[in-house]
Amino acid sequence: MSITQHHLLDTYRAHRLGQPAPPAPGTHDWQVVREWRDHRQFRAVLAGRPAHGRLRQALSRWLHARPRSTG
Results as ranks from 00 to 15, higher is better:
P25G: 02
W30G: 04
P67A: 09
M1Q: 15
Q5I: 15
F42G: 07
A44F: 05
Q31K: 15
R16I: 02
H6K: 14
D29F: 02
P25Q: 03
A65R: 14
M1R: 12
G71D: 12
R13V: 11
T4V: 07
P67I: 08
L63F: 04
T11F: 05
H6T: 13
L8G: 10
L8Q: 15
A24K: 12
R37Q: 05
R56M: 02
A24H: 10
S2V: 14
R54Q: 15
W30S: 04
A24F: 13
H52R: 07
L8A: 08
W62K: 09
P25R: 07
L55M: 05
Q19F: 13
T70W: 14
R34E: 05
P50D: 01
P20F: 00
T4W: 15
T4P: 13
L8Y: 13
R37A: 04
M1A: 11
R49N: 04
Q5W: 14
E35Q: 15
A24S: 15
E35A: 08
R56H: 05
S2F: 11
R43W: 03
D10R: 11
L59M: 04
D10L: 13
D38L: 04
G53E: 00
R54G: 12
V32A: 15
L59T: 04
F42R: 13
T27V: 02
H64K: 09
R61S: 07
H15V: 03
R49F: 05
P50L: 00
T27F: 03
W30I: 06
H39N: 07
R34P: 02
S60A: 06
S60L: 08
T27A: 06
R49M: 04
S60N: 15
D29G: 02
P23W: 10
V32M: 14
M1W: 11
H6M: 13
I3S: 12
Q41F: 14
H7G: 01
R37E: 10
D29S: 03
H64A: 02
G71W: 09
T11Q: 03
H6W: 07
W30H: 09
W62Y: 07
H39R: 08
D38W: 02
G71R: 11
A51S: 06
I3G: 08
S60I: 06
I3K: 15
R43L: 03
R54A: 14
G71S: 10
R61L: 05
H39W: 09
Q5C: 11
L55I: 12
H6F: 07
R66V: 09
L63K: 06
W36E: 11
H39P: 02
L63C: 00
R16C: 03
D10G: 14
D29V: 01
V33R: 11
P20R: 00
R34F: 05
